[in-house]
Design a protein around this nucleic acid. Sequence first.
DNA 1: GAATAAGGTTGCTTAAAGAAACCAGATTAG
DNA 2: CTAATCTGGTTTCTTTAAGCAACCTTATTC
Lengths: 162, 162
Amino acid sequence: MARKRFDDSSCSVARALNEVGDWWSLLVVLHAMYGTRRFVDFQQELGIARNILCDRLARLVDNQVLKKVDVGEHGSRFEYRLTEKGRDLFPIVIALRQWGDKWNPAPDQEPLDLRDRLTGRTIRPMEVQDADGKPLTVRDVFVPEGETATEDRLPGNRNKAG
Amino acid sequence: MARKRFDDSSCSVARALNEVGDWWSLLVVLHAMYGTRRFVDFQQELGIARNILCDRLARLVDNQVLKKVDVGEHGSRFEYRLTEKGRDLFPIVIALRQWGDKWNPAPDQEPLDLRDRLTGRTIRPMEVQDADGKPLTVRDVFVPEGETATEDRLPGNRNKAG
DNA sequence: GAATAAGGTTGCTTAAAGAAACCAGATTAG
DNA sequence: CTAATCTGGTTTCTTTAAGCAACCTTATTC
């Protein structure tokens, strides 16, 4: 497969994808948000090959998305917990989930109804917002100095792989 | 590689990742948002192998994230444009970008400064919000009926690969 | 009318994903 | 106190996809 790595890329999206942009990493993070913490539980819930899970967990720990915590008195019992960096993937996971629910709804499953614990009210759809909270589309937006946005565009750097 | 597909998965995150969860697809979408529309431009900007680009574009068209438009009078000149479904990935791309800027800032690059065209003001960080726009973390949130949220958890279905 | 550009396709090589077996240290069951 | 089991892996092998480069066809340009 010879997958490319973009550690050096000047594009932050490429750098983000480098850490959580493969098939399994984000699903591992998702399940960590669901509460999963143990190797075997990830393995069973995800149906992932054990060697691949090892690799993904190690990489997520390396990238400080998860931390490996030794529970159990004499070692040999570990938990993988989200770090702040990992928890900060929450908006991405939710945005993905809402996108999936909206555009590929499962016939037998109602969409995610996630609620605020305090008020009990449903969360709102993720959206890009201006400073006042007004929703913005890709067409409403531009990058200062020089480049300007036109229809369906979002100007950014034009470097390779970014 | 024998990558798994999750078309049948009951998890909408897995279904979303099925469409845009590989290395290249989301970068293609990102560049489409940057304004790229032509095969050769994607190829050069991304540095992607041409057969892989073919495959990804075809899949994105199949999944109705992009549409292939025949421009040029006698055929043989095409553009790939975002559909509404594709444009709807905007929050995901921005969330990824902000996460990358926050946690893996490039030393030589200032973070994305995306602005509202009308007001000229910088967009706000993506966040999960309650109905009133109050920001919520993974700990502030629960799923109704039965399951409840505890620290670092986000309850959801416990199905395989979900 | 030859050269170049656009948009691919084909064939080969390399590397990663998947499956299953194996393994060692801790815990529990009998 | 020994055997079975659980946990968290590692190893080996096979399959499949990514990367590369060459090639190909249909416009358009020179």
